[in-house]
Computed example of a mutant assay.
Amino acid sequence: MGEDLCKILITEDEISSRLDELAAAIDRDYEGKEILVLGILKGAVMVMADLARKMHTPLTMDWMAVSSYGSGTKSSGVVRILKDLETDLEGKHVLIVEDIIDSGLTLSWLKANLESRGPASVEIATLLRKPDATTVDIHVEYVGFDIPNEFVVGYGLDYAEKYRNLPFVGTLAPHVYGG
Rank of each mutant, 00 (worst) to 15 (best):
E34A: 15
T126D: 02
M55H: 08
D137F: 02
S17V: 03
M61C: 11
V79Q: 00
D137C: 08
Y163W: 08
E12K: 15
P119F: 02
D20V: 08
N165W: 04
S108E: 04
Y155F: 13
F151S: 13
K92E: 13
L172N: 04
I124Y: 09
I81S: 05
E161T: 07
L89V: 05
G43L: 06
D29L: 05
V140E: 02
A24Y: 02
D50E: 14
T106R: 00
D50P: 13
G179M: 03
I26L: 07
K54L: 08
D20Q: 09
I124F: 01
R129N: 12
H93S: 13
S17T: 08
E141N: 12
R117T: 13
I101E: 10
F145P: 14
L22V: 09
L95M: 11
L166N: 04
T60M: 04
F151T: 08
V66K: 02
L59A: 14
L107R: 00
D4G: 10
G144M: 01
E14P: 14
K83H: 10
E34I: 09
A125M: 11
E115V: 09
T135H: 02
S121D: 14
I15P: 00
Y177M: 12
G178R: 01
S76A: 09
K162Q: 13
Y159K: 04
L5V: 04
G118D: 07
F145S: 08
A173P: 01
H175Q: 15
Y142V: 10
V97Y: 00
S121R: 12
I100F: 05
G118P: 11
Y155H: 12
G118Y: 04
S67H: 08
P58N: 03
V143M: 02
T11H: 11
A160N: 15
N113R: 15
Y163G: 00
E12H: 11
L85W: 04
W63N: 05
Y69H: 14
V143K: 07
V136Y: 03
K92N: 03
A133K: 15
K162I: 05
H139C: 10
V143F: 01
I147V: 14
L5M: 14
K33F: 03
M55E: 03
L38V: 15
L19E: 10
E115R: 14
K42F: 01
K92W: 02
L157D: 00
P58C: 05
F168T: 07
R129V: 10
I40M: 11
L114S: 10
T73W: 00
I101L: 14
L128P: 14
L38N: 13
E86A: 12
T126M: 06
A112V: 05
L105C: 07
P131W: 01
V78F: 01
T171N: 04
A112W: 04
G144K: 06
S71H: 14
L38C: 14
L19D: 14
T134Q: 12
A173T: 09
A23I: 09
D102V: 09
D20N: 15
K42D: 02
F145L: 10
V79A: 01
